[in-house]
Computed example of a mutant assay.
Amino acid sequence: MTRSSRLLNILLAIVLFPLAGMSQAAGWPRQVVTDNGTVTLKSEPKRIVSTSVTLTGSLLAIDAPVIASGASVPNSRFTDNQGFFSQWGAIAQQKQVQRLYIGEANAEMVAAQAPDLIIVSATGHDSALRLVNQLSSIAPVIVVNYDNKSWQQVVTLLGQATGHESQAQTIIKQFDQRVAQLKPKLQLPPQPVSAFVWNGGGKEVNLWTPESAQGKLLEQLGFTLAPAPAELASSQSMGRRKDIIQLSGEKMTEGLSGKSWLMFVADSDTLKQVSEDRFLQQAPAVKQHNVYALGNDNFRLDYYSATQTLATLEKLFVH
Rank of each mutant, 00 (worst) to 15 (best):
R99G: 05
P184F: 07
D269R: 15
L12R: 12
L256H: 03
Q94M: 08
F279Y: 14
G57W: 00
N81L: 06
M263S: 06
G37R: 12
K242L: 13
K173N: 12
A13P: 03
S212M: 13
Q96T: 05
K173A: 12
Q134W: 13
P140S: 14
G27A: 14
N296T: 05
L218P: 10
D116F: 03
E165A: 09
V265F: 01
L232P: 08
F196C: 06
A139N: 13
T307V: 03
R241A: 10
T170S: 15
I138R: 12
I118T: 07
G27N: 12
S275M: 09
Q308V: 10
L316Q: 11
I10L: 07
A233F: 12
H125Q: 14
N148V: 02
G202Q: 07
A107K: 04
L280E: 00
Q273S: 10
W208S: 11
F84S: 13
L11G: 12
F299P: 01
Y304L: 09
D126A: 07
R6D: 02
N298A: 14
S248M: 04
E108M: 03
K272E: 10
V205I: 15
L271Q: 00
V73R: 11
L131Y: 10
G103N: 08
M1V: 11
P65N: 11
R77G: 06
P45I: 15
Q177P: 07
E231W: 06
P115G: 11
V154A: 02
L188D: 00
V97W: 03
L59T: 00
S52A: 13
Q113M: 15
Q169Y: 07
E314P: 04
I119A: 06
S212T: 07
Q134R: 15
Q167S: 10
K149S: 00
G258I: 00
Q134M: 01
D35M: 09
L8M: 05
L207P: 01
D63S: 09
L186E: 01
R30F: 10
L221S: 00
V39E: 09
L11A: 13
I91D: 03
S237G: 10
A71Q: 13
G124A: 04
S69A: 05
Q167Y: 04
A25L: 15
G295R: 05
T56V: 06
V286R: 05
N206F: 12
L232D: 03
S137V: 13
G70V: 11
A230R: 15
P192E: 04
L135C: 12
N106M: 07
T54Y: 06
L256E: 03
P184L: 09
T40Y: 07
S58G: 00
M22F: 15
A112R: 14
S257L: 02
W208P: 00
M22V: 13
D80S: 02
M22I: 11
N290A: 02
Y303A: 09
F85G: 01
L271N: 01
A161P: 11
Q191T: 01
K259C: 01
A112Q: 13
Q214M: 11
M238A: 10
L186V: 06
E254L: 15
M263I: 14
A226L: 12
V205E: 07
A283C: 12
S72H: 09
Q113R: 14
L280K: 11
L55T: 03
N296W: 02
R178T: 07
